[in-house]
Amino acid sequence: MSSDTKARIQAVARELFVRQGVRNTSLRQISDRLGITKPALYYHFASRDELVRSIVQPMVEDIERFVAQQAPGDARRLLDDYFELMWRHREVIVMMVRELSTLGYLDLGARMFDWRRQLIILLLGPELTQEQHIRATVALGGMSDCTVEYAHLPLDVVKPLAVAAAADALGLARTAT
Rank of each mutant, 00 (worst) to 15 (best):
S2G: 03
D4L: 11
K6T: 05
R8A: 15
R8V: 00
R8M: 13
I9S: 01
A11L: 03
V12M: 03
A13M: 07
A13V: 02
E15H: 03
R19C: 01
Q20Y: 12
G21C: 07
V22C: 05
R23I: 00
T25P: 07
L27D: 14
L27M: 15
L27P: 05
R28D: 10
R28A: 14
I30M: 01
S31K: 10
S31E: 11
R33E: 15
G35F: 11
P39L: 03
Y43V: 09
F45H: 13
F45E: 09
S47Q: 10
E50G: 14
E50F: 06
L51T: 02
L51Q: 01
S54T: 00
S54G: 03
F66D: 01
R77G: 10
D80T: 10
D80Q: 12
D81Y: 05
Y82G: 05
Y82K: 00
F83H: 03
L85M: 09
W87M: 03
H89V: 06
E91S: 06
E91P: 00
E91W: 04
V94A: 14
R98I: 00
E99Y: 04
G104D: 15
Y105G: 01
L106F: 09
A110M: 09
M112S: 10
R116S: 05
R116C: 04
L119P: 09
L119I: 08
I120E: 11
I121R: 13
P126Y: 09
E127N: 04
L128I: 07
Q130G: 11
Q132K: 12
I134Y: 15
R135I: 05
R135L: 13
A136G: 07
T137M: 14
L140N: 08
M143V: 09
T147G: 04
Y150K: 08
Y150R: 13
L153S: 11
L153C: 10
V157M: 12
V157L: 12
V157R: 09
V158H: 05
P160Q: 08
D168N: 14
A169Q: 07
G171V: 09
L172H: 01
L172Y: 10
L172K: 01
L172N: 00
R174V: 06
T177N: 08
